[in-house]
Amino acid sequence: MALLTIPATGHVNPTLDLAAELVRRGHQVTYVVPEPYGWAARLTGAGHVAYDSTLVPAPAETPPGPEFAAWLPFVLLEETKHVLPQLVPLMTSLPPDVLVFDRTTYVTARALVDIVGCQSVELFPSFAYNEHFDIAGDLERATILNPGHDAYRQLSDGYAGLAKEWGTTAVTVEEFAVGRADRAVVAIPREFQPAGGTFPASYVFAGPALRTRHAPKPSAQRRGVYAALGTSFTQRADTFRAIARAIETTGRPGLLAVGDLAPDQVPPSTEAVRVVREADQLAELASAEVFVTHAGMGSVQEALALGVPMVCLPQTTEQHAVAARVAELGLGVALGDAPSPAEVGAAIDQVSGDEQVRARVDEWAWLLESLDAGALGADAVQDALAASVAD
């Protein structure tokens, strides 16, 4: 079995329990991911084949709003053009029975499945999509999903040219936007998925992968604020400064992880707020009272698993959708992507003091503890393997 994903923490972490469980069941699993993430193979006992990626290093800045919806598909198309010449010889010389692929590698995976003739399982690290739910909504319909838009025509032509070059069936813009698949594993519980009841049983909502990473038990004594804004698109100096000032105004201790923020933009540590480059997020969440987050799906699911209410400061289209879902379910507050210190401080106080939010977060922690992402995902992959054997 081959497991294809991109070099991004939020896309590698959801694969860990699945890979470890497949290895435990005796399957030969090979991660296909760039070298910076070879640790995933070592952690799970899988093999590893590295490929060169246009996505390393990860983008530090992102276009705003509608530009992002049109920009990302072209970035991923260029990645497909770059990686197919590397992966086709690999897959044809040692064809997998099943290709498990991250949603962002959809175009690459569709071509590989056509060429190799194997079964496939799509992995959604965030929301799954169908005709009842589209995270981009009107935003994308104004760009790539509008056949009259230049971006639509350019992307469609790009997919057609790729298919002609490799002798495969062309992916349509609509197929890419939805990530249409016969079998899928989704790294969230069905209850968190908007329109969750409209997805078929072949879409397995397995929940987040936390067992292989040995997530700690939540602390009975919670204190302070943990803040982090993910590992991509992190050049948000004004937002980091606003968070630091906000934590100070609440009178709570805080830990602020700024990632690869430019050195001259890193806010200084103070008596109240310690500023670091990186932190053990699961360990910090286990004892945090409030989590200030960019609302990446992985971070949100980790917070829920460890019972931490959230203040969401989303930036990308998907993060805004995740933040809106957090607020809709009463698990935290969603702010804009450039809030003032006063707004962040008020939101921290609000979610910290709301007993109903705390009770709902505790319910979600129980729900996520009941899910075994590795076993559920491995069952889905084995179903695909059985279909391969039958063929």
Rank of each mutant, 00 (worst) to 15 (best):
L261Y: 10
R360D: 06
A257D: 01
E289Y: 06
V344S: 05
W366Y: 15
N130D: 11
L3E: 12
L84T: 06
E369P: 13
W366N: 09
V326E: 06
E79S: 07
T143E: 10
D97H: 14
A184W: 12
G26P: 00
T250Y: 13
E165L: 12
G161E: 06
V308Q: 01
D114H: 09
E278A: 10
A303D: 00
R211V: 09
W39V: 07
A228D: 07
A272E: 11
Q265R: 15
V225C: 09
V98G: 08
A195S: 04
V100M: 10
E79W: 05
A365Y: 05
A359F: 02
T198F: 06
V23P: 08
R141T: 11
L304F: 03
F192S: 03
E369I: 15
L282C: 10
L112T: 02
A338P: 00
L123F: 11
Q235G: 07
G330C: 10
G167T: 07
V344E: 02
P14M: 13
L139M: 14
R153L: 11
V300F: 09
G167W: 00
P194D: 01
T172P: 08
V275A: 07
L285P: 01
S126F: 14
A177D: 04
T293I: 04
A46N: 02
A324K: 04
E61G: 03
V83I: 12
A384Y: 14
P314Q: 03
K217Q: 11
T293N: 04
L229W: 00
H48W: 10
E35D: 10
L3W: 12
P263R: 05
P125M: 09
H11P: 01
T249V: 08
N13D: 06
A184T: 03
Q235R: 05
A378V: 12
D97N: 11
L99F: 09
S202W: 12
P14F: 12
T105R: 13
H48N: 08
G207L: 07
G148D: 10
T316L: 15
L256E: 06
A46M: 05
A321D: 01
Q119G: 02
P267F: 04
V100L: 10
T54L: 14
E363P: 08
K217L: 15
V88T: 01
A142M: 07
T143V: 02
S53V: 04
E369G: 14
E175Q: 12
R245A: 15
Q119R: 13
G336C: 05
G298T: 04
N146G: 12
